[in-house]
Amino acid sequence: MIEVKGLVKNFGAKRAVDNISFSVRRGDILGFLGPNGAGKSTTMKMITGFITPTDGTAIVDGHDVRRDPVAVKRVIGYLPESAPAYGEMTVGEFLGFIAGVRGFRDAEARAEKVERAIRLTHLESVRHQTIETLSKGYRQRVGFAQALLHDPPALILDEPTDGLDPNQKNEVRALIKSMASEKAVILSTHILEEVEAICTRIIIVSQGKIVVDETPAEFRARQPGARLDEIFRSLTVGDMA
C-alpha cells in the first residue's frame, strides 16, 4: 500500500533523512520510532507530499508522490504533528471544509462524512465550538477526524496520542486498532508501550537511518528481560551526541 523507496532529504549541508526504504501493507500498523530530530516527521512529510525529497520517492496505492502528488494526497489521511487547524472555525465548519476539498460536492454526502468523522472521534459535544477554544486533547481529535474523514486506505499519524490523557490515549489506540484491518497505518510516537500495544511492526530511525525494522516480539527478544526504553537507548545512542 505504502512503499517508500530510498528517501533522502538534505537541509543545507545536513542530511536529515538518509536513504530510508520500507513498505507497509494493508492491515499493518507500523510504529515509527526515534529520538527527536531523527527524521521521523521529515520522512512522513515526504510521503504525504508536503515536502519534496532530495532523492527517492514514495508510492502510495500505486501513485508516485513525485509524479502525482495530488493523487497520493487523495488516498492518504494525514495527521500532522500538533494537529494544525483553522482556529477561528468551528469543528463542524472545519470538517465541512475538509470534506469540500476532499471532493464531496453535494451537501448531503458532505454532511454524512462529517457526521461519521465526528462520531468516530467523539466530538459531538464540541461541534459548534471554535477550534481555538478547545483543549489540546480535543484539538488532537479534530486532527484525527480530519484525517479519517474520507476513509482513506492509508493513514499517516505524526504523534497521534501526544498531549492526550491516559484515557484518551487508550481511546485513540483502540480507534486505530479497529480501523487497521483494511488500512495501512504509519504512526510515529515516543511511547514505546504504545508500539507494543498496537503496532504490528517497529521501525526505529536514528540520525536519518533505519536501525531496526522488525516485529515487536523480535524487538523485545533483542535483550530478554530488559525494558523497552533500554533497548531503544542502546540502538539510538548516536543521536545523543
Partner: peptide
C-alpha cells in the same frame, strides 16, 4: 505561523 499550511498542502489541492 499556525502550521495549517501543512494541512492545506497535504489535502488534494495544487
Amino acid at each position: 505561523r499556525s502550521g495549517s499550511i501543512e494541512l492545506l498542502f497535504t489535502l488534494p489541492v495544487t
